[in-house]
Lab assay of single mutants.
Amino acid sequence: MKVIFLQDVKGKGKKGEIKNVPDGYARNFLFKKGLAVEATPANLKELE
């Protein structure tokens, strides 16, 4: 799953980066803790 990092995550990505991460990791950790959002067209547009 492609995500946009909202904060630096040690060993995974830095704020503003767009990266592919495993689905479970994204849903169960990154999204729940507010560290990233899914890289949807709407979210990508907001990032610009």
Results as ranks from 00 to 15, higher is better:
Ile18Asp: 01
Lys15Tyr: 06
Ala42Phe: 07
Ala39His: 07
Arg27Phe: 12
Asn43Lys: 11
Asp8Arg: 04
Lys32Leu: 14
Tyr25Thr: 04
Ala26Pro: 01
Ile4Asp: 00
Met1Trp: 05
Phe29Ala: 06
Gly13Val: 05
Leu35Asp: 01
Val9Asp: 01
Gly13Asp: 01
Ala36Pro: 00
Asn28Phe: 10
Phe5Met: 03
Glu17Ala: 06
Val9Asn: 01
Gly16Ala: 03
Phe31Asp: 04
Val21Tyr: 06
Asn43Trp: 07
Leu44Gly: 06
Lys19Ile: 10
Phe5Gly: 00
Ala42Arg: 11
Ala26Tyr: 09
Lys12Arg: 14
Lys12Asp: 06
Leu47Arg: 08
Lys10Ile: 12
Lys19Phe: 05
Pro41Asp: 13
Gly11Tyr: 08
Lys14Val: 10
Arg27His: 10
Pro22Leu: 08
Lys15Gln: 10
Pro22Ala: 10
Ala36His: 00
Gly16Leu: 05
Ile18Lys: 02
Glu17Trp: 03
Asn28Met: 10
Phe5Ala: 00
Phe31Asn: 02
Glu17Asn: 04
Lys45His: 11
Glu17Gly: 02
Leu47Ser: 07
Lys15Leu: 06
Arg27Pro: 05
Glu48Met: 15
Pro22Trp: 07
Leu6His: 02
Ile4Ala: 04
Gly34Arg: 08
Lys10Thr: 11
Lys45Ala: 13
Lys12Met: 15
Gly34Ser: 08
Val9Leu: 06
Phe29Glu: 14
Leu47Met: 11
Glu46Gln: 14
Ala42His: 12
Glu46Asn: 13
Ile18Val: 13
Gln7Asn: 07
Val9Gly: 01
Gly13Leu: 02
Lys14Ile: 09
Phe5Thr: 00
Gly16Val: 00
Ala39Val: 09
Ile4Pro: 00
Ile4Thr: 01
Glu17Ser: 06
Ile4Arg: 04
Gly16Glu: 02
Asn43His: 09
Met1Asn: 04
Gly13His: 10
Met1Asp: 02
Tyr25Arg: 04
Ala26Asp: 06
Gln7Met: 12
Gly24Ser: 15
Ala42Val: 10
Gly24Arg: 12
Gly11Arg: 06
Asp8His: 08
Leu30Asn: 00
Val9Glu: 01
Lys2Val: 14
Glu38Val: 08
Pro41Arg: 09
Lys19Asp: 03
Lys19Val: 11
Ile18Gly: 01
Phe29Met: 07
Val21Asn: 01
Ala39Met: 07
Gly34Val: 03
Leu6Gln: 03
Lys45Ile: 11
Lys2Glu: 10
Arg27Gln: 10
Gln7Thr: 13
Lys19Thr: 07
Asp23Ile: 15
Glu38Ser: 06
Lys32Asn: 07
Lys19Pro: 00
Ala42Ile: 10
Asp23His: 13
Pro41Tyr: 12
Gln7Leu: 11
Lys19Trp: 08
Phe31Met: 07
Lys33Glu: 15
Pro22Asp: 13
Glu46Thr: 13
Gly34His: 11
Asp8Ser: 08
Lys14Asp: 06
Gln7Tyr: 12
Phe29Tyr: 15
Met1His: 04
Asn28Ala: 07
Lys33Asn: 15
Lys32Val: 14
Leu47His: 10
Ala26Gln: 05
Asn43Glu: 07
Leu30Ile: 01
Val21Phe: 09
Ala36Asp: 00
Glu48Ala: 14
Gln7Asp: 08
Ala39Glu: 02
Ile4Val: 09
Lys14Ala: 08
Met1Leu: 14
Val21Leu: 06
Met1Ile: 15
Tyr25Pro: 04
Tyr25Leu: 08
Phe5Trp: 02
Val37Gly: 02
Gly16His: 08
Glu48Phe: 12
Gly11Asp: 09
Ala36Phe: 01
Tyr25His: 04
Leu44Glu: 06
Lys19Glu: 02
Glu48Gly: 12
Leu30Lys: 00
Ala36Gly: 03
Asp8Glu: 08
Glu38Gly: 04
Lys45Leu: 14
Leu47Lys: 08
Gly34Met: 08
Thr40Val: 06
Ala36Thr: 01
Ala39Arg: 01
Glu48Lys: 10
Phe31Glu: 05
Asn28Arg: 10
Phe31Gly: 02
Phe29Thr: 10
Gln7Phe: 14
Phe31Lys: 03
Glu46Phe: 14
Tyr25Ser: 03
Ala36Glu: 01
Phe29Leu: 08
Asp23Trp: 12
Lys19Ala: 10
Asp23Met: 14
Val3Gln: 00
Lys14Phe: 12
Lys32Ile: 14
Leu6Val: 10
Pro22Thr: 09
Asp8Thr: 10
Phe5His: 00
Phe31Gln: 03
Glu17Tyr: 02
Gly13Trp: 10
Gly11Ala: 05
Lys15Trp: 04
Thr40His: 05
Phe29Gly: 05
Gly11Gln: 05
Met1Glu: 02
Thr40Trp: 04
Glu48Ile: 14
Lys33Phe: 15
Gly13Gln: 02
Leu35Met: 07
Gly11Trp: 07
Gly24Asp: 15
Lys12Val: 15
Tyr25Phe: 10
Leu47Asn: 09
Pro41Ile: 13
Asn20Arg: 14
Glu17Thr: 06
